[in-house]
């Protein structure tokens, strides 16, 4: 077990180094890209603040509460794309047949694909987004006790893994249906553009669907809601526990589904 961990640890940094060197071929573009992503997030936040202020809040949530929800969603998504977002290349590999190469290596294909395409260097601006999240939490009057900080850390991790599970399920499905770009587009836009508002505004059916069917609410509205004390019947401690348990369930389901589908992978042209 120890040898296996050492093997994967070394492999991770080797592949990461290779990727970073290839990215550095276009150094200026690389840094402008980092600044661009940060600018984009800042612009969306500013737009949202302008809008919610103009209308004096949304569904009973104040501007700063909405800003906190937005920064939480952004932080979760950015953590996901920085650390495990490398698996996003799976549909392209399935379409082109490159998946064969990863399945033939002795290492775990998911691990290899992730570190081959991961964007861990982007995590440096996650620090900036974390700072914005903390500032919004302070303005939204969340009391910073040690317990709250621990729950915040756990909920951010849970959000990241919920996203991982949802995306992994879609990538598993892509093994059968090949083209899932439209489905991914829906998922991206729903999470980044609409989960930044309380899901209650979309109606009961949508709220149910975002909780049990496509659990994006578990990575956005519910964690932010329990931190702000806005989810009826759930205290911070219980809320964190429930969300953590749901995350474990979704992760297990996603891995099981991935295993079932990858066994039925038949490459291109076969």
């Amino acid at each position: 077990m120890g040898a296996k961990i050492t093997y994967y640890w070394r492999l991770y940094w080797t592949v990461l180094g290779m990727q970073l060197r290839s990215r550095m071929s276009f150094r200026l573009n690389f840094f402008v890209m980092l600044a661009g992503v940060f600018l984009r997030e800042a612009a969306t936040l500013a737009l949202m603040v302008v809008l919610v202020r103009k209308f004096d809040g949304l569904a009973g949530w104040s501007t700063w509460e909405i800003a906190f929800l937005y920064s939480f969603v952004t932080l979760t998504f950015r953590n996901f794309s920085s650390f495990v977002g490398g698996i996003g290349q799976i549909p392209a590999f399935i379409r082109t047949g490159e998946m064969d190469v990863y399945l033939l290596t002795p290492s775990d294909p998911l691990f290899l694909i992730n570190c081959r395409n991961t964007m861990i260097w982007r995590s440096f601006y996650n620090i900036g987004i974390l700072a914005v999240t903390i500032y919004c939490a302070y303005k939204a009057q969340i009391a910073f006790a040690p317990g709250t900080v621990c729950c915040l850390a756990v909920l951010i991790l849970c959000g990241m893994f919920i996203l991982f599970a949802v995306y992994l399920i879609i990538y598993a499905v892509s093994i059968r249906v090949v083209e899932v770009s439209a489905l991914l587009k829906i998922l991206d836009s729903v999470y980044k553009q609409y989960m930044i508002y309380p899901i209650s505004i979309y109606g009961r059916i949508a709220a149910w669907a975002f909780t049990f069917l496509l659990p994006l609410g578990l990575a956005s509205y519910y964690p932010s809601g329990v931190l702000l004390g806005r989810v009826a019947g759930l205290t911070l401690g219980w809320g964190t526990l429930v969300i953590a348990a749901a995350t474990c369930l979704w992760i297990t389901a996603a891995f099981l589904l991935w295993r079932v589908f990858i066994r039925r992978y038949d490459s291109t042209g076969t």
Partner: peptide, 22 residues
């Protein structure tokens, strides 16, 4: 520059705000 995806990210951020589409 050969690669402009970074410039496009930055520009799209400004466009998102000032186009009035959102």
């Amino acid at each position: 520059t050969q690669e402009i995806s970074g410039f496009l990210q930055a520009r799209d951020a400004v466009m998102l705000v000032f186009s009035g589409s959102m």
